[in-house]
């Protein structure tokens, strides 16, 4: 029983950063931007979350700084790709490199360490206990006592779905990706929709990064996102960007993430258990490719 609860809570905490980053990415996906900078945005956010929480002794300010850090990358992305019209793929890769380089640099510059920074003075984002629900057997310890950002991620999923499919803004957002010319001729600037989508993406990636460094663990490590941004990109592609689909896929990845940790306690070496989420991504891609192929066959 406890093992099962452990697996499920592990799944939830593994899923949260991927879910948040993918939700951010999906807004840009709908707006027609090939955005691969989630990895970098998350990494920046993870760094600035630790910086804010450590220097200002408050996790709220840590969260705000995290979003600010991701926002810096979003602004650079906007400057290069929307204003100067630089290739989005190139901009994204360069930004990921920039995030990796500058966080490594700042880690050395501000905290005077290489590799990992951790301190008792970093305030982590609290876990939330929900009064009545935590009394329910089995479900109680799963639904209650999770990190605040986990609950924010759940809200964010519904918010994204509502925003994209139930509001005028969402319609315009999708139009920006689907047919930017007709959106422009209807009097709404596509570039403006894209800018807004990138800024929103930074907010979500900011939360995702803050969860990594102030929730999942309380430290900053060089390159601590470890490909999660890329997995979130895969998640978006796999479900064509639908927020609820993304939530499902993220839980699946979270499950494999947790499964890896679980196997580790059974003596499988950590290098192999760490591979599990990436192998799972390959598996998911396989299923996606097969489904696509069948769909095409049915069309003919």
């Amino acid at each position: 029983m406890n093992i099962l609860i452990g697996l499920i809570t592990g799944m939830i905490s593994g899923a949260t950063p991927i879910l948040l980053a993918a939700l951010g990415g999906t807004l840009t996906f709908y707006a027609g931007i090939f955005n691969i900078a989630m990895e970098g945005m998350m990494l920046m956010a993870a760094f600035f979350a630790v910086l804010g929480s450590f220097a200002l002794h408050s996790w709220v300010l840590g969260l705000l700084l995290a979003v600010g850090g991701a926002m810096i990358l979003a602004l650079i992305f906007i400057f290069f790709s929307v204003v100067l019209n630089t290739d989005e793929f190139v901009t994204g890769i360069a930004l990921n490199l920039f995030a990796l380089g500058s966080t490594t640099y700042l880690l050395r510059q501000i905290f005077k360490v290489k590799g990992v920074f951790t301190s008792k003075a970093i305030v982590s984002v609290p876990n939330i206990r929900i009064p009545l629900i935590d009394k329910i057997p089995f479900l109680g310890p799963i639904l209650s006592g999770r990190n605040l950002i986990v609950y924010l991620a759940v809200l964010a999923t519904v918010f994204c779905w509502y925003l994209v499919f139930r509001t005028r803004f969402g319609l315009r957002l999708r139009a920006a990706g689907y047919n930017s010319n007709s959106l422009d001729s209807s009097g709404v600037r596509t570039s403006r929709m894209r800018i807004v989508s990138l800024l929103l993406c930074a907010v979500f990636c900011g939360l995702a990064g803050a969860y990594l460094s102030l929730g999942y663990v309380t430290l900053f490590a060089e390159n601590m996102t470890a490909g999660r941004g890329w997995i979130s990109l895969a998640a978006i592609i796999l479900v064509d960007g639908h927020p609820f689909g993304i939530a499902l896929i993220s839980l699946l990845f979270g499950f494999f993430d947790g499964l890896g940790l679980f196997l580790q306690s059974y003596g499988v070496s950590s290098q192999f258990t760490s591979m599990v989420p990436y192998i799972a991504t390959l598996g998911a891609l396989y299923v996606y490719a097969r489904r696509n192929r069948e769909r095409e066959r049915n069309r003919l």
Partner: peptide, 23 residues
């Protein structure tokens, strides 16, 4: 100056060189 500045410089180089070329 920490040697990690090289990484920052590289990322700036990529962005600026590509943007300059296209512009």
């Amino acid at each position: 100056v920490p040697s990690e500045i090289a990484q920052v410089l590289q990322a700036v180089l990529v962005l600026v060189i590509v943007a300059t070329r296209e512009y």
